[in-house]
Design a protein around this nucleic acid. Structure first.
Length: 572
DNA sequence: AAAAAAC
């Protein structure tokens, strides 16, 4: 049980040696795949089948060939391309899946040499034994690509724009240097770095801030740093200057900080390190002003800034670079591209009504829980979760930002404990969240951008594990289909030929989508029709078959259900 | 290009 809890908690690496006995025990039990329609909760069994996550750690998915990652080329500017010679995996058990080797590109002046090991950081930068032993303690054996290049840059107090795929260890890349630079806790008499908070990490969602905080606490173990996950409650305690002067590091969402700044309950004039996680998200219109206000409050002349993301569109990069001082840019693998480890596919569902039957059909076959399902809005998340519960799918959960803080926290912890089999969520879960067990992602609603697509499906395929991602598309999604199809192709999965033959929608057309969305979409649907009439007929027929099957299933279910017999464990 | 998330 303990093993399971550790495994399913984000960031904790699976250690087969340590849990060998448990694994054997569980394997002996031969847990069955969950069957959505039939399963009921075994009351007293030692290990309910849904808790057998060890099969994921052992990697049961079919092997897929890797496509060689390739950097973009830019004739101008100082640029270096290096092939990483070590894998990216953090646990180095011999039977772990090999991490893909990503190409690393650096750009900027006097780029520090990368490190091959964490120990090298002690020799070169006097990284403390304390941090090194905490790393070892939590299973970090060798630096990943972004860690091996990014950490030295930050250790040398340089500004950094880091782009590295989902699940490749970006969090540690900034936490380790920042914690190393903290030195003595502000509360101690030995502190010589002035009073007040010295480091600031900004993230777009509470859940992500929370997760970063957890990672931070792992590294901080054994030291008396005050690391504050900023919330309404913690913000209130910082009204007292005595208290807030003893804080070393704050992790927060931007608006929370802005509120405290404006109330005069916070000073950031001693901040030496600012990190923007999910930088492109933090720099888009809705967050930008808040972020700029926070940065403006960090008035210390030596403030170091770093931005991290798996995606960084050109305009976001421009904004980021303009904020940084003599920055170094590091790109691991291909920017804005999913990992080849994630097997991606597209599923045609004709229209919105066809989605549910398609999903129910999918869930009636064996699948790998927990399954993460993305929808486009809060009400859709709620109602899809309800539909699934009504249809007898066990252990359905829902998470969106309209829920209360407690509901959100509970949903995340159920997810971490492996109690959720099917998690329906909005964009709130799309970025940064690290649930090690997630092997499958379904985009029930088509993602609104390439960035959204990359981050959503990046919830699987983390730390070298394989994953699977399915994206539903309707006629209305046609204008953006080709863009996503190209991303899928780029990352080594295949898409139907006819989709690639779709004409590229012009910028004009896409603009019009906003205004005359429906009419335009219908046009595009016609375009699909023109492209390959036979293919489309097949798909529509498939969709009809699924609808019919679902109708039959519902009838059977209605016929079979007796009032007292079964209670769905409906916790949505 | 557009919704969600941030308090």
């Amino acid at each position: 049980m303990e093993a399971f809890h550790l495994l399913s908690r984000g960031g904790v690496k699976f250690d087969k040696k340590k849990f060998k006995n448990d694994v054997e025990l569980f394997n002996g039990k031969k847990a069955k795949e969950p069957k959505a329609s039939t399963s009921s909760h075994a009351a007293d069994s030692e290990l309910p089948p849904e808790l057998n996550f060890f099969k994921y750690a052992e990697g049961g998915a079919p092997k897929r060939k890797q496509s060689a990652a390739d950097g973009e080329s830019d004739p101008k500017g100082k640029k270096r391309k290096v092939d990483e010679d070590e894998g990216e995996d953090q646990d180095q058990q011999a039977d772990d899946p090999p991490m893909p080797r990503h190409r690393v590109t650096t750009k900027g002046s006097n780029v520090p040499e990368h490190v091959e090991t964490f120990e090298a950081l002690r020799e070169r930068y006097q990284l403390s034994n304390h941090l090194l032993s905490n790393l070892a303690e939590h299973g970090y054996k060798r630096p990943t690509g972004i860690q091996s290049y990014g950490i030295p840059i930050l250790m040398e107090h340089r500004d950094l724009a880091a782009i590295s795929p989902t699940g490749t260890g970006k969090t540690l890349s900034y936490l380790l240097p920042v914690m190393s630079a903290l030195g003595a806790p502000a509360a101690s008499s030995k502190s010589d770095t002035g009073t007040g908070v010295r480091a600031l990490i900004l993230a777009p969602t509470r859940e992500l801030a929370h997760q970063i905080h957890n990672e931070c606490l792992k590294l901080a173990q054994g030291r008396k740093w005050r690391i504050v996950l900023f919330s309404k409650a913690t913000a209130a305690t910082l009204k007292d200057k005595q208290v807030r002067d003893k804080v070393d590091l704050i992790i927060s969402t931007p608006l929370r900080l802005v509120a405290s700044l404006q109330a005069g309950h916070l000073e950031l004039n001693n901040v030496r390190h600012i990190v923007l996680d999910e930088a492109d998200r933090m720099l888009d219109a809705e967050f930008l002003e808040q972020v700029q206000e926070v940065i403006a409050a960090c008035t210390h002349p030596d403030v170091q800034k770093a931005v991290f993301s798996a995606t960084l569109p050109a305009n976001a990069e421009k904004v980021a670079m303009s904020m940084l001082r003599n920055p170094i840019r590091v790109v691991v693998g291909l920017k804005d591209t999913p990992l080849p480890l994630i097997a991606q596919s597209l599923t045609y569902v004709a229209d919105d009504q066809s989605k549910l039957p398609t999903l129910l059909q999918y869930l009636s076959q064996p699948y790998n829980p927990p399954l993460l399902i993305f929808v486009s809005s809060q009400p859709r998340a709620t109602s899809l979760a309800e539909e699934l519960v009504i249809n007898g799918i066990p252990n359905v959960d829902c998470l969106h930002a309209g829920m209360t803080k407690k509901e959100r926290e509970d949903a995340v912890s159920r997810m971490r404990r492996g109690e959720s089999w099917v998690m329906v969520s909005t964009e709130v879960m799309a970025r940064g969240m690290d649930f090690k067990g997630v092997r499958e992602v379904i985009n029930y609603d088509f993602p609104q951008s390439v960035q959204s697509y990359v981050h959503r499906i990046g919830r699987t395929g983390r730390a070298g594990r394989e994953g699977k991602a399915i994206t539903y598309f309707t006629d209305l999604d046609a204008p953006f289909l080709k863009t996503i199809a190209n991303v899928i192709l780029q990352s080594g999965s295949t898409v139907p030929e006819w989709i690639l033959k779709l004409p590229k929608p012009s910028k004009m057309k896409r603009k019009q989508m906003g205004k005359v969305k429906r009419a335009e979409a219908v046009n595009n649907a016609r375009r699909i029709g023109r492209m390959d009439a036979i293919k489309k007929r097949e798909m529509i027929a498939g969709s009809k078959r699924r609808k019919e099957k679902e109708q039959q299933r519902k009838e059977r279910l209605a016929a079979a259900s007796t009032p007292s017999a079964e209670g769905t464990n409906g916790d949505s």
